[in-house]
Amino acid sequence: MKYFKNLQKSYDVTEDDLRNIASLKEIMENHKEDFVRDVFENFTKKFRLPDNVYPVVLAKHREFLITWYNRFFEAKLSNAYLAYLEKFGNLQKKYDIDYEWINAMMSYIRLWMHERIFQSLDDDVYRKNILLSVHKFMDINFDAVNYAFCENKIREYTSIFSVRNFVVSVSEKFSFLMHALMVVILIVMTIAAAVLFGAEILALLKENADKVLITALGSLLMIWVLVELLHTEVQMLKGGKFKISIFIGVALIAFIRDLLIITLKHETSNPVTYGFVLVSIAVLGVIYWMIAKTEK
Rank of each mutant, 00 (worst) to 15 (best):
Y11Q: 02
V13Y: 01
D16K: 14
D16C: 03
L18M: 09
L18A: 00
L18C: 04
N20S: 01
I21C: 06
A22G: 08
S23K: 05
S23Y: 08
L24W: 05
K25I: 01
K25Q: 13
E26I: 00
E26W: 04
E26T: 11
I27A: 07
M28R: 09
M28D: 11
H31R: 10
E33K: 04
D34Q: 14
V36F: 03
R37L: 02
R37N: 12
D38E: 14
D38P: 13
V39C: 08
V39K: 06
F40R: 15
N42G: 04
F43M: 12
T44A: 04
T44I: 03
F47Q: 11
F47A: 02
P50F: 00
N52T: 11
V53M: 11
V53A: 02
Y54W: 12
Y54F: 10
V56E: 14
L58W: 09
A59F: 07
A59S: 12
H61S: 09
L65F: 10
L65Q: 05
I66G: 05
R71E: 14
R71G: 00
R71T: 08
R71W: 11
R71L: 05
F73L: 04
A75T: 06
K76E: 13
L77H: 08
S78I: 00
N79W: 01
A80D: 15
Y84C: 03
E86N: 04
F88D: 09
G89P: 15
G89R: 07
N90T: 07
N90V: 10
N90H: 11
K93V: 10
K93H: 13
K94H: 10
I97K: 11
D98M: 05
E100A: 01
W101R: 07
I102Y: 09
I102D: 10
M105A: 11
M106C: 11
M106E: 15
L111Q: 15
W112E: 06
M113R: 06
M113K: 06
R116D: 02
I117K: 01
I117A: 00
F118I: 05
F118L: 13
Q119I: 07
S120F: 01
L121W: 10
D123K: 13
D124A: 05
V125D: 13
Y126C: 02
R127I: 01
K128L: 00
K128R: 06
N129M: 03
L131C: 06
L132C: 13
L132P: 13
S133T: 07
S133P: 14
K136G: 01
F137A: 00
F137M: 07
F137D: 06
M138F: 10
M138S: 10
D139I: 04
